[in-house]
């Protein structure tokens, strides 16, 4: 179904391939289904948006393309068409969907703050939260506090796909910030909640996670969230050329550190989970860093491992370090055991 998604996206946007990766053991051999992942949007209320020099790309005030909305509409249409042909489109939002951290001081968080964001993006949210789309929402660090509100009860911190014998963990990715900041004592409970057995990981641990979020991840957002400059994506490919099985893969040996950020931590976590639970995980998919990329390495037993960073719809990227900045606007897709990341732009 990659071709069908590419066609649907091409109808509303100029599409370029950021990276592709093929692993025949991913357990998604069926070309009749596709997983579509939409990364960090960081939506704010219209009032709050005016306080920042940057915002959600192709969605904010003054943007006439409404690309993000068009893309979601195209995905929703594809899902409907696919269902009629007995095919399946599964949609995920990777977290940091509503940006509560930039919207208010968290102590002031209440229903009205959330409503303020929602009211400013009614059409987009209506599309993404339409029951017919059946979007699976992950909580990120900037919207983690939604767990306190019963309306968001069904949103999760991680998903495992395919459900029968998972090979892929989907999570926002902020967890790896904590792992790499070496705070093991606090992390113990969080690791239990995110990765292991369900041992009392209720609201107290969720609250502890929220505290850690604030302690380790909050910063000055006046000029940006995760990036200090455009994320260097590498050479992108025009979609008129056939998609190679593997394109623009990052590795520890040959790529700059930013391109392999969290790779080793993610690989280690999967290896540990496999050892403790007998699972066969071999890929972690995240958002969070706003740097779209696929990085690979081998697990201790020689199994290929990949970290897929789905990018963002906020902040910017460039093909090369120091190159022309373009707004981050990425979509990731998995079908027929192949992962692809696309960079989108409004038609000229």
């Amino acid at each position: 179904m990659h071709d069908q998604l590419l066609q649907a996206l091409s109808n509303v946007a100029t599409v370029r391939l950021v990276a592709s990766y093929t692993d025949n053991e991913l357990q998604f051999p069926n070309g009749n289904s596709i997983q579509v992942l939409i990364p960090d949007m960081h939506l704010l209320s219209a009032a709050r948006r005016t306080l920042y020099t940057y915002g959600t790309n192709y969605e904010g005030a003054g943007d006439t393309s409404h690309l993000l909305q068009s893309v979601v509409t195209a995905i929703a249409q594809l899902k409907m068409d696919a269902a009629a042909a007995n095919q399946r489109v599964v949609v995920f939002v990777m977290g940091d969907y509503l940006d509560l951290w930039r919207e208010c001081l968290l102590a002031d968080l209440n229903d009205e703050v959330i409503a303020g964001i929602r009211n400013s993006h009614q059409q987009l949210l209506g599309l993404l939260e339409d029951p017919a789309l059946n979007t699976h929402f992950l909580l990120g660090n900037h919207d983690f506090e939604l767990y306190r509100f019963p309306s968001y009860n069904a949103w999760e911190r991680r998903f495992f796909i395919p459900g029968d014998d998972p090979t892929i963990v989907l999570m926002h990715g902020d967890y790896f910030d904590w792992v790499e900041q070496n705070i093991p004592e606090d992390l113990r409970d969080i690791a239990v909640y995110l990765f292991s057995e369900p041992v009392e990981p209720g609201k107290a641990i969720l609250g502890k996670m929220a505290d850690l979020n604030k302690k380790y991840n909050s910063t000055d957002y006046s000029t940006g969230i995760e990036l200090t400059g455009p994320a260097p994506l590498g050479s992108m490919q025009n979609p008129s050329r056939p998609c190679p099985p593997n394109h623009n893969l990052q590795s520890l040996k040959s790529s700059p550190p930013a391109a392999t950020k969290f790779l080793e931590s993610a690989c280690r976590e999967c290896a540990n989970m496999n050892a403790s639970s007998g699972s066969h995980l071999r890929m972690v998919i995240i958002g969070h860093t706003h740097h779209a990329r696929i990085a690979t390495m081998s697990m201790p037993d020689g199994t290929p491992f990949a970290l897929v960073d789905t990018g963002a719809w906020i902040e910017s990227c460039a093909e090369a370090e120091g190159g022309t900045a373009i707004p981050n606007s990425q979509i990731t897709a998995i079908s027929a055991n192949q992962v692809r990341i696309y960079q989108l732009a409004p038609h000229a």
Binding site: H136, E156, F160, F195, M273, S277, G278, S279
Partner: peptide, 22 residues
């Protein structure tokens, strides 16, 4: 396994790894 959510089952998206054993 599916986080008590039939929408997750519909798309074969698990929430708890290895729920059967756990």
């Amino acid at each position: 396994k599916f986080g008590l959510n039939r929408n997750n089952k519909e798309d074969n998206v698990a929430v708890v790894l290895n729920a059967k054993a756990l």
